[in-house]
């Protein structure tokens, strides 16, 4: 089955039809997607600010992470489910859209950045967990995260203006 055939199948699914062919399906799902984005990226930004040593420097880095994670993860789940629904509605147009590919690339890079931080940088956290300003690798992870999530948001909005 080719990618375009998968896209056509998604678009003909009940979810795809709900998003594409009902008056309120698309705006409501987009609004939910934005709420999910605000929760996840908005909270991740505050963890990044802790990594940069500019917020709540009296709180250990891993404690800030543990406190924000449940809410950020909830927002991320909302974003993924609603994003999947939006993709189902317009899969073919999205597949051919440059900004959609940029958005997915930025998301993948953000995930890789997070993975690298947790698997590599965090190995030495015992020595800097309570430091007001974490070491360079942690700060770099914070900056990279902020830049990539900003790219996700900008590319996502550009999709709307170039897909239809």
């Amino acid at each position: 089955m080719s990618v375009l055939q998968v896209c056509a199948w998604l678009e003909s699914s009940p979810v795809g039809l709900l998003v594409r062919e009902t008056l309120w399906g698309f705006p409501i799902v987009v609004a939910i997607h934005i709420v999910g984005l605000t929760m996840s990226a908005g909270l991740i930004a505050f963890f990044d600010l802790r990594l940069l040593g500019v917020w709540l420097t009296g709180c250990p880095v891993n404690v800030v992470y543990r406190r924000l994670l449940p809410f950020a993860a909830g927002g991320f789940a909302i974003m993924v489910v609603s994003g999947g629904m939006l993709l189902a509605g317009y899969a073919t147009a999205a597949y051919g859209n440059t900004y959609f590919r940029l958005k997915i690339a930025a998301l993948c890079l953000a995930a890789l950045n997070a993975l690298f931080y947790h698997r590599v940088t965090e190995r030495t956290i015992a020595s800097w967990n309570e430091a007001a300003v974490p070491p360079l690798p942690a700060r770099a992870a914070g900056v990279t995260s902020i830049v990539l999530w900003t790219a996700v948001i900008l590319a996502g909005r550009m999709m709307s203006y170039t897909m239809f």
Partner: peptide, 24 residues
């Protein structure tokens, strides 16, 4: 279209900052 889309993206970045801050 590029400028309009970019401004719309910035509008959403602003909202994400507000939302994240309000949540915390």
């Amino acid at each position: 279209t590029l400028l309009t889309g970019f401004l719309s993206g910035l509008h959403l970045v602003g909202m994400t900052l507000i939302g994240g801050s309000a949540l915390v």
